[in-house]
């Protein structure tokens, strides 16, 4: 049981839904990332998703493309991302960190070395966007050897056969992609979420987080009625893009996530109990 399992178990106990903000490491500036992570926790984040910048983010929309480009221009490489996690861990032992990224930077480092260094830095799980269950086995074993979970995406297009296979491999939580599209797309249809989420609930045996296209407190609250966690990425990254200093970035993070947290908590009571009881 790693930090991520403990966190979801604790949340389930008190009926709180996980707020999972995503930020791109090194955006808007590598020196500000650790402060932004702490600010997110202060504003009510339960799990942190930290994007490892990549030059060719095929599954991401323009906001995260731009964030990755800025982070790379500012010299964010993988060593620097690990240093950020280490620095964060000096002041926060408890908040789980999920690294989110693409295959090639991991391949270049070597999967085993990547997993070992990620664990040493204080990472708890890894989501590789372009590594579906079919290709995941070597990676999953490297991560498991270090006690790290591999997080998998489930999409509206995922067939029942695939769903069973993914749920077999998944650890930590299952990330449901709420729409057919890239990150930051505008057209989240809340009504279409209920049916696939209840189907997923039957298979998963793990907490379910929902992401892609969630940008406002009201949407986050609506999703919190149906899922164990809510991922917000592009909407936050878009605001951070305007920050001119670490202080501004911290302030923007709190100002954005605070109302999201409040809206999610306000619906906590009338939501049906989670199928997951640890």
């Amino acid at each position: 049981m790693n930090r991520l399992d403990r966190r979801f178990a604790a949340l389930a106990e008190c009926g709180r839904r996980a707020l999972i903000p995503y930020i791109t490491a090194g955006h808007p500036h590598p020196d500000w990332t650790v402060d932004i992570l702490h600010a997110a926790v202060s504003a009510g984040a339960d799990v942190l998703e930290l994007g490892v910048p990549f030059s060719d983010v095929m599954a991401d929309g323009p906001v995260i493309q731009n964030a990755c480009a800025r982070a790379l221009e500012a010299g964010t490489d993988f060593d620097r991302v690990l240093a950020m996690v280490e620095a964060f861990r000096r002041d926060d032992e408890d908040t789980p960190i999920v690294l989110m990224g693409y295959m090639n930077p991991i391949e270049r480092r070597g999967q085993e070395r990547f997993a070992s260094q990620a664990r040493q830095a204080g990472v708890d799980a890894v989501l590789v966007v372009d590594c579906p269950a079919d290709e995941a086995e070597p990676m999953r074993q490297c991560l498991a050897a270090e006690g790290l979970h591999q997080i998998f995406l489930v999409a509206p297009t995922t067939t029942p056969e695939r769903l069973a296979r993914i749920c077999n491999l998944a650890g930590g939580f299952v990330y449901y992609v709420s729409l057919k599209g890239v990150t930051g797309a505008a057209s989240l249809d809340l009504d279409s979420l209920a049916a696939p989420l209840s189907r997923l609930r039957k298979h998963a045996g793990l907490p379910i987080a929902v992401g892609f296209g969630i940008r406002e407190p009201a949407q986050a609250a609506a999703v919190a009625r149906m899922a164990d966690g809510v991922v917000i990425g592009s909407a936050l990254v878009n605001r951070l893009d305007r920050a001119g200093s670490a202080e501004q970035a911290v302030e923007l993070t709190g100002a954005f996530l605070g109302p999201v947290r409040a809206a999610m908590d306000a619906v906590g009571e009338d939501r049906p109990a989670s199928a997951v009881n640890h």
């Binding site: 590594c131 579906p132 995406l153 489930v154 999409a155 297009t157 599209g181």
Partner: peptide, 14 residues
């Protein structure tokens, strides 16, 4: 080779 894409495209590739 293989199929290194986001889950959303897997069903379409199948």
């Amino acid at each position: 080779g293989g199929r290194f894409v986001s889950e959303t495209l897997m069903a379409a590739l199948e």
